[in-house]
Design a protein around this nucleic acid. Structure first.
Lengths: 678, 156
DNA sequence: AATGTGTAGCTTACAGTA
DNA sequence: GACTGTAAGCTACACATT
């Protein structure tokens, strides 16, 4: 109806009628019927481009009103209509992009396929927002959204670069999207969609004239073929190991000769080439040696970024004969670096300049004095620790079998842990944690240290130490570890769950989830704390924690009847606590409503999903919620604030298969309550 | 007395090598909706098929007597439970005269109807160490046989 | 094309508010 | 008695699957 009127108005231009209609529409967009709002909003959207006059009541133009509704209207369909009809310009684009995270998957999908595909130039979206939306689109939980996002890139956006892949990558600013692997994910999905329609060949010319984009293409394509086990194609495109080693060397040299403007690009190219090298076959002895010597030289260079260092160590493990050979080589490298630092200590102006450059990032962590020599030694130590860390991540053999590591432990790691420099202490602790994976005695010996760091360290150290502690318990078992520290661990867990830092709460939750799910640890108080933390108002923005526990609780309860029993034993008292916190909420705080909490707890303790998982109801207590019902009814006649919520959970319980006796108890209790009420 | 410990060593390799791995991946599929936390949680029913199957199984295996004795009373008595709630105090029956409705809706709604960032939590994160990465491919195991023996003799 | 699945919207009923 | 918000059950429809 409004639509018709609006259309008519377009034909018969009458100012009075127009104003009347507009103000009527301004009311109808607040109508309580969603269908009316849809009509109003479609009508308004017809006027959006012709009218930017602010409404006298709130000072908002039509477009501003529409974008406001787009965010706030509860009906997905209203939002959808706006998405479809809102014109794209600088003011509306951010609102449209925001809808790539709409709760409604159809809305998410149409933003990709109907809006973002249509924009003339994707570079108008700032690269940060661009990568964010690409990431969320390509890894959406819904298949159709993933597809739409993929098609947007592979069909529409690449057209803007005239179907030229390298041109496209350049416009995409792929170097800005490396964090979280978004660039790689994007290119991989693009290649997968268009693989058949393009032939990718890397010849000598290609390798000799790499740009950041082509190097990145080589890296991603290699990875893709590798993950798809397409060995023949891989052999076709990859150069021989020797040649590749030369290329790496070549670009590494270019990097060091580069001007300030281009050094970032060459650094990037080297990183991609190192990445490609991980997929080479090192069976050929000549190639292996050549590669090794190139790597061995590169790793000594002073100002290597961390990811280069990680790749180098990783590659050196591939070129090594076996683990002992590998560790020996790395220890050589480390002592070379230490020597180098000591020598450079004395003179050498130029290297201290370099250090300053690299030190900029690290400087803020390092303590006050800017003495270049001390700084340099420190950075060398830090580099050794990083190498050591990457090495230890790879090592598997126990310390007895690979005793060379002891040396480095005493000479490098332990002093770092004791260092007064915060950065060194953190990195040292990290290494120590990794070494402890290789030797049980060493691990047990250091447990108290880790505990001490968790309770007394600064936040970063706390996080590391806590993670290590959980790793150790996972690896060597709770009894073994707690023997060392008595009952401290339980209270330590509780302390961390209660911690002010959301990160620490999260680490503690995930760690405990792992321990509990693997049956290493079992405790009803801790479980209760986890549930409380999950629903607590302070956790509402801790998405990691929430998503971790959202997975954990059903997995825990529906995988074993023993677990479910434990949950049901704490369920009612926990629910009670939570409802009380809900009733005490301060202004500005929020948490899940009691009814939601009730439903979730009822679901966790429902025996039917457990039966479905175990594919039989052996050992499953089908009347488990009957006992909970009894619990509820017993508390019910005491407390009256809780009545509502408790009655609600009563209706959610599964009582069909409750045994007669429990059933009788339930009925009796209900009867008593009824009488008391009358 | 609550703290019980049951464990062997190295849970990560234990679990990931064992079949528990597969068992956990069951939850990866069943929990793929409802990933976003309590604020977006919804109960998904339509287990009617599996429930019916289960009931049928029960009917087949168990005696019909248990079926009668358990389910029928529960159904009856449960309705009584509803009545107890508050039914008898029903008000008199009147036709509801409807006057002009206020058609505007109160939008104090501050919710933006957005999903949180998806951390893609899955069994994968529950089967790994925090610090030590798990490499699916053993890098030296192939070469090891020939070189390992050589090395040991050399070193010793 | 036929089927099953999931969701939106409608209706009904009830309890609280003032 | 009016009017709200909430909950639950039902139906129709759109979608995906085979």
């Amino acid at each position: 109806m409004y639509l018709i009127l609006t259309n008519i108005l377009f034909c018969y231009n009458s100012e009075d009628l127009y104003q009347d209609l507009k103000s009527a529409l301004y009311y109808r967009i607040k109508d309580k019927e969603a269908s009316v709002r849809i009509q109003a909003v479609t009508a308004l959207s017809r006027l959006q481009s012709a009218d930017d006059e602010p409404d006298q009541k709130d000072g908002l133009t039509i477009i501003q009103k529409l974008t406001w509704i787009l965010r706030h209207d509860a009906s997905a369909e209203v939002r959808r209509v706006i998405i479809l009809n809102l014109e794209i310009n600088d003011t509306t684009l951010p609102s449209l992009i925001e809808r790539t995270r709409d709760v409604d998957f159809i809305n998410r999908r149409i933003v990709f396929e109907r809006k973002l595909s249509q924009i003339a130039d994707f570079q108008v979206i700032p690269s940060e927002a661009r990568f964010k939306l690409i990431k969320s689109g390509l890894s959406d939980r819904d298949k159709s959204v993933r597809k739409a996002a993929g098609k947007m890139i592979a069909d529409s956006w690449i057209k803007q670069a005239d179907q030229n892949l390298l041109e496209f990558l350049e416009r995409m600013d792929i170097m800005d999207g490396m964090a979280g692997g978004v660039s790689e994910k994007m290119l991989a999905s693009l290649l997968e969609l268009r693989m058949s329609s393009m032939s990718i060949k890397f010849d000598g010319q290609f390798w000799e004239n790499l740009s950041p984009e082509s190097a990145f293409l080589a890296y991603v394509y290699t990875n893709l073929l590798h993950s798809k086990k397409m060995e023949e194609q891989l052999d076709e495109i990859l150069p021989e190991v020797t040649r590749h080693a030369f290329y790496i060397q070549h670009y590494n040299n270019l990097w060091h000769q580069a001007t300030k403007e281009t050094e970032g690009e060459y650094e990037f190219i080297v990183a991609q080439m190192l990445g490609v090298a991980k997929k080479l076959d090192y069976a050929d002895e000549v190639g292996r040696r050549k590669m090794y010597s190139v790597l061995r030289e590169m790793i000594l260079e002073p100002d290597l970024p961390d990811d280069h260092l990680a790749s180098l160590v990783n590659l050196m493990s591939l070129t090594a004969m076996d683990e002992r050979d590998f560790t020996r080589i790395m220890i050589d490298v480390i002592s070379d670096i230490q020597e180098q630092a000591d020598i450079d200590d004395v003179d050498n102006e130029s290297s201290s300049k370099r250090i300053k450059l690299e030190g900029l990032a690290a400087k803020e962590y390092l303590s006050d004095e800017a003495d270049p020599q001390i700084l340099q030694v420190m950075l060398a130590k830090l580099k050794c620790l990083s190498i050591c860390k990457f090495m230890l991540e790879i090592c598997e053999e126990s310390l007895q079998d690979n005793s060379t590591i002891y040396g480095i432990l005493n000479q490098l790691v332990i002093p770092a842990v004791q260092s007064k420099e915060v950065v060194l202490r953190e990195e040292g602790l990290h290494c120590l944690g990794l070494v402890c994976h290789l030797d049980k005695d060493l691990a047990l010996h250091n447990i108290t240290l880790f505990v001490h760091c968790v309770s007394n360290g600064h936040d970063e150290l706390k996080k590391k130490a806590l993670m290590i502690l959980f790793d150790m318990i996972m690896k060597y078992g709770y009894p073994t570890v707690s023997e060392k520290i008595g009952d401290v661990s339980k209270s330590l867990f509780e302390l961390c769950l209660d911690n002010v830092s959301p990160d620490i709460q999260y680490i503690a939750s995930e760690g405990l989830a792992k321990l509990i799910l693997s049956r290493s640890y079992k405790n009803d108080d801790t479980l209760k704390l986890l549930v409380l933390l999950y629903f607590f108002p302070t956790s509402i923005d801790n998405t990691k924690l929430q998503q971790c526990l959202t997975y954990f609780f059903p997995a825990y309860c529906h995988s074993s009847s023993e677990n479910q029993k434990m949950m049901s034993s704490i369920a009612i008292s926990t629910l009670q606590d939570l409802i009380l916190t809900y009733l005490d909420l301060e202004e500005g705080e929020s948490m899940a409503a009691p009814n939601v909490i009730s439903e979730m707890i009822a679901h966790w303790t429902d025996p039917r999903p457990l039966v479905e998982y175990q594919r039989s109801n052996d050992d499953v207590d089908m009347s488990i919620q009957g006992k909970m019902a009894v619990d509820i009814l017993r508390t019910l006649h005491r407390a009256d604030i809780l009545r509502r919520a408790f009655c609600h959970i009563l209706t959610k319980l599964y009582l069909d298969e409750v045994d007669q006796q429990t059933l009788k108890t339930i009925l009796d209790l209900a009867e008593i309550i009824e009488k008391v009420q009358l | 007395h609550n703290t019980m410990e049951i464990t062997e060593t190295d849970q990560v390799t234990n679990i990931s090598t064992n079949q528990e791995n597969e068992l956990l991946s069951y939850f990866d599929t069943t929990l793929s909706k409802n990933w976003a936390g309590p604020t977006h949680w919804k109960l998904r029913k339509t287990k009617s098929t599996s429930v019916k199957q289960d009931k049928n199984h029960d009917d087949g295996t168990n005696s019909a007597a248990t079926e009668r004795s358990q389910k029928k009373p529960s159904a009856r008595l449960f309705t009584i439970d509803f009545l107890e709630g508050e039914d008898i105090i029903t008000d008199d029956i009147f036709a509801l005269p409807r006057r002009a409705n206020i058609t505007v809706n109160n939008t104090k709604d501050h919710s933006l109807h957005l999903l949180p960032d998806d951390e893609n939590f899955s069994s994968k994160q529950l089967l790994r160490y925090f610090m030590k990465p798990v490499f699916s491919v053993a890098r030296w195991k192939n070469k090891n046989f020939k070189s390992q023996t050589d090395e040991t003799t050399e070193i010793v």
